[in-house]
Nucleic acid binder design. Structure first.
Length: 561
RNA sequence: GCGCCCGUAGCUCAGCUGGAUAGAGCAUCGGCCUUCUAAGCCGGUGGUCGCAGGUUCGAGUCCUGCCGGGCGCGCCA
């Protein structure tokens, strides 16, 4: 529809250029906007205002000239010039409903496109350290990352979901020490408890499982507890495997699956860390200072140089990160999106600087980052402090248990990534029926219910075929719904391009709202079978789009509620 | 102090690459179930878009400064 209008305008613009009203050496691309007010038609174009200067005549006059030269089209019923020079297009009713048969033809494919042409894209998200259960911040990352992945797939990209699993470094030592302390019967209140030890109750669970000789499976490896509180290496391996298994269970309950779990330790085993250091040194971007090896990240926009090898010979987290991203590049991902919490935003400049210093032909702005702001959790009006060390947090599992997977996913994906999110547990738990996800699911269930009723009445029709004469749809609510349905493909394209999955939730809420209004105002199962069939076709199209949209959010579309 | 993000209705948030009288939900007030699921619908109340300048035919949207909040500024990850 929008394309049609655009083509008409481009034709008129070309005519004006040929006539000399508009300079021929400039290109004019009309922008077609959706109107807010129905009095302004279905679409509006501001090209006359934008091009008035170039034409050297008042906007309204240019608009008139454009309208006179618009080719005729059956899709357009009326064109008006309004305000300072907007060109408003009123589309014909018949053309508005074409989308209904399109949707029913394309079914689950409606809204999908092939813009990505199978290009390999990697989305790295969650990437939590295996030092504790996933908390609500990881949940936000999981909801956003997975939805983004689904959106990219819907745009024709070949998406790899990857989890970077930090199983080397000081945090893991800290974890092992904490578990060992618990295994020895110490508590965080004891004086000999490790200074930065993890204090959560789950540490006790790990210690008990270790002492009991339990076997856990994670990452295709099996680890059995040795029951020896002195064997720190055994404790370390057991604890990591145990917590990884827990995280896997959390993710499974959340409906998120990864294609690749990438172990930081493998970068050391494969020599990739060493190779990276060598390459950086050869390229002349390193120097020794106070016994440490530094990288001149300031040459690539960082505000200070960074240590990559510590005085004690160990590497900072940042070097394996660079090695890891070089590996991503070498695996052929021309587009990589890292979804992380905004508390990691300082790594963006650093990692990109490190990659530039490799002279590996990696583009300057690579990789992309989607950084979500922090999640604040409130309970009884009080902020719940999230701290792994203090042992106080809200886990993803808690949320799923309390408010359900659908609501949790929806809620965590429903806001712009760069605004902070308040997750009010009381609201989500005690007033679940006020959560927008139920409102949308209810619209889907209602349509299914009507279809069941129709079947009971002995009307046999295909559930995905367009039956009935769509020209019998004449109500304003019906045209509004058709227009909303027609916007869906554009939404899928822009949400993926902008990396903003939250638009999907708002779109679906609007669509469901329009449907509920229509449902209450007009019955569908009426005696006039011709009108009934047309309306049922519209119902089917709405149901299909809701189902397609919810699927991209990883939220179920129930047939009854 | 420096860097990134945010500041829109009492609360939680939308507002697409600047566009025509700023939108939802919750809360609140008042209506609608013998009729396809009331987890619903209809209506009312409620906003100097943090403040001040600037750019533009036009600014919630772009630029500058200030105020307020979050995050970061480790030889932690």
């Amino acid at each position: 529809m929008k394309e049609t209008v655009s083509e008409l305008l481009q034709s008129a613009l070309a005519t004006l250029q040929a006539e000399g009203t508009l300079p021929a050496d400039q290109t004019f691309t009309p922008q077609i906007g959706n109107t807010r007010d129905k009095a302004h038609g279905d679409y509006a174009c501001n090209i006359a205002l934008a091009a008035a200067k170039a034409a050297g005549c008042p906007p309204r006059k240019l608009a008139e000239a454009l309208v006179e030269r618009l080719p005729r089209s059956t899709a357009v019923e009326k064109v008006e010039i309004a305000g300072p020079g907007f060109i408003n297009f009123f589309m014909s009713t018949a053309s508005a409903f074409e989308v209904v048969s399109t949707i029913l033809d394309q079914a689950t494919q409606y809204g999908r496109n092939n813009h990505g042409k199978g290009e390999k894209v990697q989305v790295e998200f969650v990437s939590a350290n295996p030092t504790g259960p996933l908390h609500v911040g990881h949940g936000r990352g999981a909801a956003i990352g997975d939805c983004l992945s689904r959106l990219l797939e819907a745009n024709g990209y070949d998406v790899t979901r990857e989890f970077y699993y930090n199983d080397a470094g000081a945090q893991i030592n800290n974890l092992a020490l904490s578990v060992q302390s618990r295994a020895k019967g110490l508590t965080p209140e004891d004086e000999t408890w490790p200074a930065d030890g993890y204090r959560g109750d789950y540490i006790t669970d790990v210690a008990n499982a270790y002492l009991a000789g339990e076997t856990v499976t994670a990452d295709d490896r099996e680890v059995t507890g040795k029951a020896d509180p002195e064997d720190q290496q055994a404790i370390r391996e057991f604890a990591v495997a145990y917590l990884r298994r827990e995280q896997d269970l959390d993710l499974k309950a959340f409906g998120v699956e990864f294609d690749v779990y990438f172990l930081e330790s493998s970068l050391y085993e494969d020599g990739k860390v060493e190779q990276t250091v060598k390459r950086l040194q050869e390229n002349g971007y390193t120097y020794e200072h106070e016994g440490a090896l530094w990288l001149k990240t300031t040459e690539f926009g960082d505000d200070k140089d960074r240590v990559m090898r510590k005085k004690d010979g160990g590497y900072t987290y940042f070097l394996p990160d660079v090695a890891y991203h070089l590996d991503k590049w070498q695996r052929g991902f021309t587009t990589v999106i890292n979804e992380q919490g905004a508390d990691h935003h300082s790594t963006v400049t650093r990692v990109r600087a490190g990659l530039q210093a490799l002279n590996a032909g990696i583009p300057e702005g690579w990789p992309d980052y989607v950084l979500h702001q922090m999640v604040m959790v409130t309970r009884s009006g009080q902020e719940v402090k999230i701290s792994k060390r203090a042992g106080s947090y809200v886990t993803v599992r808690d949320l799923i248990d309390e408010v359900g997977r659908d609501a949790t996913r929806f809620f965590l994906a429903a806001r712009r990534v760069d605004s902070q999110l308040t997750f009010d547990i009381d609201l989500a738990r005690s007033q679940t029926n006020e959560n927008p996800v139920y409102y949308i699911q209810y619209a889907h269930a209602r349509i299914c219910s009507v279809l069941r009723k129709l079947k009971e009445e002995g009307v046999d029709r295909g559930l995905n075929e367009c039956v009935g004469d769509l020209s019998l749809l004449t109500l304003d609510e019906e045209k509004d719904l058709a227009n909303q349905l027609a916007k869906y493909p554009e939404l899928i394209e822009s949400s993926a391009r902008l990396r903003e999955p939250h638009h999907l939730t708002h779109y679906l809420r609007d669509l469901a709202g329009q449907f509920h209004t229509y449902y209450n105002a007009h019955k569908v199962l009426i005696e006039d079978t011709a009108v009934r069939d047309a309306r049922v076709s519209l119902y089917l199209a709405i149901r299909q789009v809701i189902a397609n949209g919810l699927d991209l959010l990883g939220v179920s579309a129930p047939e009854e509620m």
